[in-house]
Amino acid sequence: MIRAFTYLIVGWVLIAVGGGLADVFMITVMLPATSVVVLTHIAFSRALPMPLGLALAIALGYLEDLHQGAPIGTLTMAYALAFVALSWAAERLAITGWPTRMLSAFVSVLVVDLLTAAILVALAEPLGLRRDALWTALWDARWHCIATALVAPPVWTLFERLFILLKIQEPAAPDGPSPLGAPR
C-alpha cells in the first residue's frame, strides 16, 4: 500500500512540476508526460496487483484531466486502457537499462496519445470539439513522446531510489541494474 501511495503522491507532484516548468520556460508543445512514465513503472515493476495498478492509472489519468483541462474522463480512460495494454506487455517483456526505459516510455505515451485522440474524436460532437484541430494536435504529439522518453530515465531512477529509501525494494545487485518485469 505504501508503494501505491508513493506512486500517487509522487505522480501528482510530477504532474504539478511539469505544469510549473512549462509555465517558467514557456514550453507549450514539448512537455513530458511524467505520469505516463509512472504508469509504465507501475506496469513493468509488477509489484502491485492488477486492480490496484489500474486504480492508480485511473487516479493519475483523472489528475492529468484536471491539470490539463481536458474533458474529465478522457485521459482517465486513456490511462486505464494503456495500463491494461502495458500490463499485458509486462507479462512478456522485461525492461533493463535506460534505453529500454526510454523506449517503453515513448511507446506508452504514444499509446496514451493515440487513445486520447481516439476518445476525443469519438466524442467530438457532444464535447463540442473540431476534429480537424484534433488531427493537427495529434501530429504535435511526436514532441510529447520525445520529451517523455527523455525524462523517463531520471523518473525511473527517482522511484527506485525512493523505494529503496522507504525500504520497500532491495538495492540493485552490484554487477548490474535490477531487472524489471521478472516473473512474479
Binding site: M50, P51, L54, A55, I58, G61, Y62, P71, I72, G73, T74, T76, M77, A80, L81, V84, I119, L123, P126, L127
Partner: peptide, 17 residues
Amino acid sequence: IVVVLLAIPVVLLRNTA
C-alpha cells in the same frame, strides 16, 4: 474489479459529454 474500475472513466466521460 478491473471491469468495475474500467467503468469509472466511462461514467466520467458520460457525465462530461
